[in-house]
Simulated scan of single mutants.
Amino acid sequence: MKKLFVLLSLFLFVGCAEQKTQEPSVDAPVEEPVVEEKEDSVVSFMAVGDNLIHGAIYMNAYAKYGSYEFDDIYSEIKYFVESKDVAYINQETILGGTELGLSHYPMFNSPQEVGVAVANAGFDWIASCSNHSMDKFEDGIISDLNFWDQYPDIVTTGLNRSFEEQQTNKYIERNGVKFGVLGYTYGTNGIEIPEGKEYLVNLYSKERIKEDIERLEGTCDSILVSMHWGDEYSTTPNAEQQELAQYMADLGVDVIIGEHPHVIQPMDWIEGKDGNLTLVIYSLGNFLSSQDEAFNMLGGCASFDIRKDGNTGETTVENVKWYPVVNHISYGDYMAGTRDYRVYLLKDYTDELASQHRLGITRQYFIDKTEEVMNDKFEIVY
């Protein structure tokens, strides 16, 4: 009996051992490949408003220097322009040059030396179209664009010498981020664009904007649009501005930069139909002019960054700030018939400088007017 028990135990042990050896082996865990996180790319922008060259400005320059020299006008803001990756300015008046005959209000033609000073100051996106684009007719547009050809690193939007040029996408690329840029105006002060040459000036319509944006889609990381729109001397956007801003937000535009009213209007966020956020700058006001009212001496500089996610490629607008800008015109030298035109960020504009402004404007006036117009959605830098 004892012998039988031993044999039975041995049988069970061997059977269990055989069953154990027949179990499938477990593979070692497979290590997942390490996904390297890519760094984001950030591009800094600034935008200022109307570079409106009245006759007093270019005649003053000639009286002071015996030539058309304008670098000193932008000297006090140059450091800030050069600190940004992309700097935008609206060239309100056509740069047809002296050969076409200089002129001022109501039909402007400015010295091309203005453009030289703008380039020297560090601006690299020029919004060229405005309601004054046809002031020297087709010849003015061609002369203006031929001038800017000397600066291949500067991009202009809104004017064209041919249909092919109008249909050619415009880009700005910085820090590995590619931006598609567009520019439009509402009209040309009743001066008709020649039949068959509608390409000369980009007049906006919803159909036109949609067509141009669709041509850019898939070719760039972000789209920015310049709009010459709104009611002159109104500090609030009108219904058309708001409707078009929403329309462009729905089309996925990241930033809309507005000018024309000659006074500042607020900035805002607009949500597009896909949940995207669009920054709209309704009006930057005047950057430089020789207008006669205190509120025309206050402009704006919008500063913002565009971040491209290194992993998803998505872009977002961030770090948005508003810098008030002062168009300073001194009392000047009465006997010599000259004045000092300069542009300052308000944060750099002292009470002493304000006391020299020919309109007798205080620094506090610029602060009060800014707070009257702007909302509390963005930081204002004084």
Rank of each mutant, 00 (worst) to 15 (best):
I270D: 03
L8H: 03
L7E: 10
E259N: 14
V14C: 08
M227N: 03
D333E: 10
V48R: 08
S25I: 14
S205R: 09
N51L: 12
Y282F: 14
F295D: 08
T315L: 06
F295Y: 11
P237A: 09
Y65H: 14
T219C: 08
S110W: 04
G272L: 07
V253K: 01
G66C: 10
R307V: 12
E259L: 03
R358V: 13
E198W: 07
C301M: 13
S110V: 03
Q241R: 00
E32P: 11
K38E: 12
G285N: 05
D309A: 10
Y171L: 05
E164K: 12
K369H: 07
P106W: 13
V373Y: 05
E318Y: 00
Y88F: 15
I380A: 06
F70C: 00
H357M: 11
G252S: 06
T219A: 15
N131I: 13
E293W: 05
T350H: 07
Y331M: 14
V263W: 09
K170A: 05
E192Y: 09
N276M: 00
V116D: 15
L224I: 14
D368Y: 05
T362Q: 03
S143D: 06
L8E: 02
G275N: 03
F11N: 09
G337E: 06
E314W: 01
R307H: 04
Y184N: 05
I154T: 04
L52F: 15
H132R: 13
L10F: 15
W125V: 15
L200A: 10
T168H: 01
W322M: 15
Q166Y: 13
E113I: 08
L346N: 09
A47V: 02
T316W: 08
K197I: 04
E138F: 09
G300R: 01
K178G: 07
S222N: 13
D72F: 05
K210E: 14
E18W: 14
K3L: 14
N175P: 00
Y58G: 04
G176I: 12
I223V: 15
D250Y: 01
A119C: 03
L277E: 13
E138R: 14
E195I: 12
G313I: 06
Q291K: 12
L216G: 10
F295A: 07
S75H: 00
D274A: 09
R358W: 11
S290W: 10
D40T: 01
K178N: 03
S41C: 10
V255A: 09
V177K: 05
E195F: 06
Y282V: 03
G258Y: 02
Y365N: 02
K136A: 06
I367W: 05
Q167Y: 07
F5N: 02
Y151E: 00
V280A: 05
S44Y: 07
Q19I: 11
F13T: 11
S283D: 02
A56D: 11
R342V: 02
Q356I: 05
D340M: 00
V373R: 04
Q265F: 11
L10Y: 09
L298I: 00
N327P: 10
G300A: 13
Y62R: 11
I126N: 07
L345E: 07
H132Q: 10
V280F: 02
L288P: 02
Q22L: 13
K84W: 03
G140R: 12
W269I: 08
H54N: 14
